Amino acid sequence: MTSIPAVRVRGRHTDVLGAVLRTAGWTVVPDGPADAEVTGHADGIRAQCAGTTSWLADQAQLGRWARTAAVGPPLRAGNAQVGAVLEAAAGIGPFFAVQAGPPDGDGWTALDAPGLATLTDTVGERIGAAERRVAASIMFQGLASRLLSPVLAGLAHGVVLDLDPAAVFVRSRPGEAMALTCECPGGWLAPELDVRLVAEVLLEQQLRPLLETVAADARVAPGLLWGNVASALVGALRVLGRDPVAARAVSGLLAHGPLVGTWEVGPAGFRRRSCCLYYRVPGGGYCGDCALLPRGSASRPNLW
């Protein structure tokens, strides 16, 4: 006898979405691990099952998806599991912290094209960058670090955190770490490390759309921005103190798709093949893993 798949419904219009899914033969559960997760957004529906994510325009598309979706591992993590991972990550430091819930108070910016442009302008003004591409690179490196750090931390708990950019808001204030809040933080259960899943969630779903938007807006080379991601991965791993699961994940990610060719291991360790442009900021200089440093000079150590 085939078991009835379980789905969790979140976000907007949960009653309506739940009714569509029940009609298609799903059991709607309030929490706990589930075969799938459906989240209602203002501009569509996000449906996730078996390690894949689909964006659906309306209830009719959701009904078709529900009748044809292939059910299988990995399962979606429950709210309590995701909350525990977020709490543990926040305990590592401010760069690993993500709030759960809608923006509370002023100063929050959505990660859409206007929001990313505003963040670039804010960072450029703060650091005195005369070139917008410099401001965009510095902003994106900080944003990428904030998005990927909690994901790496969560792997030790058997969860691949899923911070949907459409539900993430950023607050950048002078003298403070960039803050993140996510309206509907989620995750995939992964008791054993699955680098393919981590790459799909982190690099393709979370970072790629943001990177392409920033690259187009500020006319900065995508390869440079992917180099920022590689550098941020190694930087987060240093903070995690050689955590074996995170180390294997970083090693696998650096050998994946857009990060291939963005780095090398030199005499002094990890070294990127591009420059984040920080040296063009007034009073700036070269990072420890910069491609512009003489070979053999101080760099980030090889951590994997």
Rank of each mutant, 00 (worst) to 15 (best):
P5M: 05
V16S: 11
T27S: 09
V28R: 03
V29S: 00
D31I: 02
D35S: 01
T39L: 14
G40N: 06
H41I: 05
D43R: 12
I45P: 13
A50G: 10
T53D: 02
S54K: 07
S54T: 10
W55S: 12
A60K: 09
W65D: 04
W65N: 04
A70E: 06
V71K: 03
G72K: 01
P73S: 07
G93W: 03
F95T: 14
V98M: 14
A100T: 06
P103S: 07
G105D: 01
A117D: 09
T118A: 12
L119E: 12
L119Q: 08
V123P: 09
E125T: 14
A129H: 03
S137I: 14
G142M: 08
V151A: 15
V159N: 02
L163G: 07
L163P: 03
P165N: 07
A166R: 09
P174W: 09
G175Y: 02
G175T: 03
A177C: 12
T181E: 03
G186Y: 00
W188E: 00
W188Y: 01
L189G: 02
L203I: 10
Q205Y: 15
L207N: 14
V214A: 11
D217S: 13
D217E: 04
G223N: 12
A230F: 01
L233F: 04
V234D: 10
A236H: 07
L237C: 08
L237H: 11
A246G: 10
R248M: 11
V260Y: 06
T262P: 07
E264V: 15
E264G: 11
V265M: 09
C275L: 04
Y278P: 05
R280C: 05
P282G: 11
G285E: 04
Y286S: 06
G288A: 13
C290M: 10
L292C: 09
N302C: 10
